[in-house]
Design a protein around this nucleic acid. Sequence first.
DNA 1: GTGAAAGCGCTAACAT
DNA 2: ATGTTAGCGCTTTCAC
Lengths: 342, 342
Amino acid sequence: MPSPERAGQRAGQPTIADVAARAGVSLATVSRVMNGKRSVDESLAVRVRAAAEELNYSASPLARSLVLGKTNTVAVVVPDLGNPTFHGVLRGLSHGAGEQGYHVLIADSAESVTDERILAVETRRRCDGIVLVSPRMAEDDLQALLAELDPVVLVSRDAGASTTTPVVTADYEAGLRGLLDLLFDDGHRSMVFLSGNPQSASNVRRLAALDGFLRDRADVAIETLPCGVNFADGYDAADAVLATAATAVVAFNDLVAMGLLSALSERGVTVPQQLSVVGFDDIPFARYTTPPLTTAAVPVTELGEQAWRRMWRLLNREPAGEPLVFRPAIERRGTSAPPSPR
Amino acid sequence: MPSPERAGQRAGQPTIADVAARAGVSLATVSRVMNGKRSVDESLAVRVRAAAEELNYSASPLARSLVLGKTNTVAVVVPDLGNPTFHGVLRGLSHGAGEQGYHVLIADSAESVTDERILAVETRRRCDGIVLVSPRMAEDDLQALLAELDPVVLVSRDAGASTTTPVVTADYEAGLRGLLDLLFDDGHRSMVFLSGNPQSASNVRRLAALDGFLRDRADVAIETLPCGVNFADGYDAADAVLATAATAVVAFNDLVAMGLLSALSERGVTVPQQLSVVGFDDIPFARYTTPPLTTAAVPVTELGEQAWRRMWRLLNREPAGEPLVFRPAIERRGTSAPPSPR
DNA sequence: GTGAAAGCGCTAACAT
DNA sequence: ATGTTAGCGCTTTCAC
């Protein structure tokens, strides 16, 4: 090849051969020195290091990857980079991976569940493993994908039939139950649940919590309103919420809660006096709303860090261990209070 | 090599040789077919495609990258994945790159300016170009790094001495000036500026706007208070702000403004009645604070998209064009109003 | 139009 | 301890 330029390096990036020539040794020796193999005479090693230094040489990760069979890269596949929840995961993952000298590739499926599979499979070929955040994918499809992607760590949902796939998630059911109990203890008996995407695994868990709660508390009425997962969805739900007799609203997540809060404020509805509102996730902004948002805290950064740990084990062919399920901490803040007579 | 497993592929991933054998043709022919070269007999092509299909073959990106000299990957280097501003950039970039079949690598320097250079250089070897978001790096260091990283697109700051580096940024000076004018027109004559990191390029631009404004308006007093760039910084600045006689606060960014808002609310200080507060950036949450935050809108997603476009041109050895400087739109919302007599 | 062979930059047997 | 050599999986001359 004429090769005007090599991948990942500007024209003229020195190769191992350049170093070898300059140090007057073989390629193998350079390779050994660069990889810290002890079996090379110190005098040679010194020459090699000097030559490498002078040429500003560092081995091509590409070539190494090809021969070593590993890229030192993992990828994280998310449905929507716009969602603050994923930011935390990404950050935790990036930090963890970085500490171990791993790089991270991001793949945003832009909410398209259909493309997600293709994207994941394609991305998989460029790295050593996938951290999959795919709350919406149907269970069957997920199972097939898990096998194809191996090694893979699943975040924010359980692995269903797959017992081998490591999972790092939150107990959405317990979290929602905690929120419901909190509202109940405050005296609320009529509530609204603003539901997220029906496809979403975590929404299913929330619904399960609702069912369980209603079974335990016969004197409570909870109406489920289809809503969504974003600000705008919560904002748009305000009228529907106000049309009910509910004294408290359980939003699918903090985003929805904040959107709702915003719309309520515009309508002059005071929170928590006229209506209690609780969110879910405890995104960084939640404590800074006015009043601060009562919510169930999911430690997203830790989710990411732990996802990395599991991935790390997988990469080293160690057992990944039990599913890790964080129990959300109920953060009682300013948007919830006992109901006042309407 | 015994090679139990190749990079980016599970054990037994088919290679081009497998396909060639199955189709009864040479490697070269398979390569041609897979790459859509027209110069191969249709009957052979059909056989090859069938074989590839049956084996579920797709070419190793790694091997291709090595020989082709390109990885079809770009990296984005950011100082802090936790900052919402970067999320937008990342998203825009990811979408743009994805459309052109490029992948994106993220590198988070975790605020460490010293490691940033090393991280960037290391990351550079794994991709075809770098999108650099480095608001704090000193100009001299930046120039050196730019040369080493080439091709590189710079986001959210100007390229200083480098005339060849494409730049995508916002006009922070004009944005801040717009905010100051808005407050001035509302009648504010005593203000506080909550400054960000003094090292940061965009903070310097804001300070320049302040200077220019004060030169034009002799009757206005603006006190600059060192603050920071996060919620907590704004929150913690509340007392210092209240100790001044200012009727309006210009926060370094929305995060700071929101933190301040939160602390003010706790202290019973009403906004905008007792104090006007304006932010900068227009992060997604800004319009949902109570009251909604007056701010200067930086189109971060577009910044990311445009950064990709520039990168794309660079990768194709086209001139990247003029620096792209977005002028922030002043979003007048609820946190600013004429001052009331104290 | 098709195949043989060289080579991308590197590592790891396998010699010596 | 060091060098020689055979690949990793692919693309692309270069002959036919």
